[in-house]
Amino acid sequence: MKNPLVSVVIPCYNQGKYLTETVQSVLASRYRPLEVLIVNDGSTDDSLEIALHLKEKHEELTVIEQVNGGVAKARNTGIKAAKGEIILPLDGDDKISADYIGAAVGLLGDRPEVKVVYCKAVKFSEAGQKPWKLKPFSLRALARDNMIFVAALFRKADAIAVGGFSEDMHMGREDWEFWIKMLKNGGEVVQLPFVGFYYRMTPDSKRKKTGTGRKKRERIDYLNRKHADFFQQQLNGPLRFQRSWSRVYNTLLGWMGKI
């Protein structure tokens, strides 16, 4: 039985400094067949030049250009263009291990009930690296916070079915909302027991820019508007600013309302 084609979607905005290293980590994968789609999201640095140079050297690469529209739109562009039945989004400055794709694809093939496969991860920078302490997955935990980084593997059909990444989510953590809408109506999640993903920390990392209190409030308001049913089911009401207390607070309010 032939291995399914995996499409690795790499959105890139001004990440030319790291793009070659990211692509090389994918091409070093022990799994084949692969296609690598670099989506240049209107970069103003040398990202496009580097992407085109890489394409000349590696026939598995495709370069797509678009006017800057944000990372969600860039991922969606790549997913729509992908020929593979399995997708791996990978940002233009991160890396994967050589065995990550193969292990994930094997699990997706053996267990059709599984929708998302990810792995253990580390955060790294020029100062070194450290384990990324990800909380265990459950739907109730996902309602409070995201523990699945964007570089997980899933079927293209499942992504298309939920409309891809939400392009109107401009306050960060769009991967969190993507997992909510993909998983809230069913589907299992598996974390592989080894480090397969390397998240690069830089002075201008998006996680830092979207970690402010204002962005957090905007994000919570957005999630509550789009997924009120999910939060009602998992948290007995809306997601609160103090997220870990949401279920307790909502349950207490419900009891008080019955008195």
Rank of each mutant, 00 (worst) to 15 (best):
K135T: 06
A141I: 06
D145G: 12
A121K: 04
W132F: 13
R140A: 13
A152I: 05
N146S: 06
P136R: 02
F149G: 11
V116P: 10
R155L: 07
L134K: 12
F154K: 00
K135M: 05
V122R: 07
Q129K: 07
L142I: 11
A143R: 01
S138T: 05
F154S: 04
P131G: 04
R144G: 15
D145N: 15
F137D: 02
A127I: 10
S138D: 02
K130P: 15
F137E: 00
G128C: 07
D158P: 00
G128V: 10
D158Y: 01
P131C: 06
R144I: 12
G128E: 07
V114S: 01
V150Y: 03
V114P: 02
K123T: 11
A157I: 08
K130W: 12
D158H: 00
E126V: 12
P131F: 06
A152M: 10
Q129C: 15
N146G: 10
K120V: 12
R140F: 12
K133F: 08
K130F: 13
K130S: 11
D158I: 05
A141P: 04
R140L: 09
F154H: 03
D145E: 15
L139C: 06
V116N: 04
L142T: 10
R144W: 11
P136C: 06
E126N: 13
R140W: 03
V116E: 06
F154I: 01
M147C: 10
D158F: 02
K120R: 11
A143E: 12
G128L: 09
A127K: 13
F124H: 08
V122E: 13
F137I: 01
V150N: 00
L153E: 02
R144Q: 13
V122F: 07
F149N: 02
P131K: 14
I148Y: 13
S138W: 03
K133H: 10
L153D: 07
S125L: 06
A127P: 08
K156Y: 01
V117G: 04
F124L: 14
N146H: 12
V122G: 14
L134H: 12
V114D: 00
Q129Y: 15
A127S: 15
K135D: 14
K135F: 11
P131V: 00
L153V: 09
S138I: 00
F154Q: 06
L153M: 05
K130T: 13
Y118E: 15
V114G: 01
I148W: 04
K115M: 04
V114N: 04
A151H: 06
G128I: 03
A127E: 15
A143G: 07
M147N: 05
P131W: 08
V122I: 07
D145P: 11
C119Q: 11
R144P: 11
A157H: 05
A127D: 12
L139D: 07
K120N: 13
V122M: 05
R144T: 08
C119N: 08
W132L: 15
G128K: 02
D158S: 00
V117I: 13
R155F: 10
F154T: 02
F149L: 09
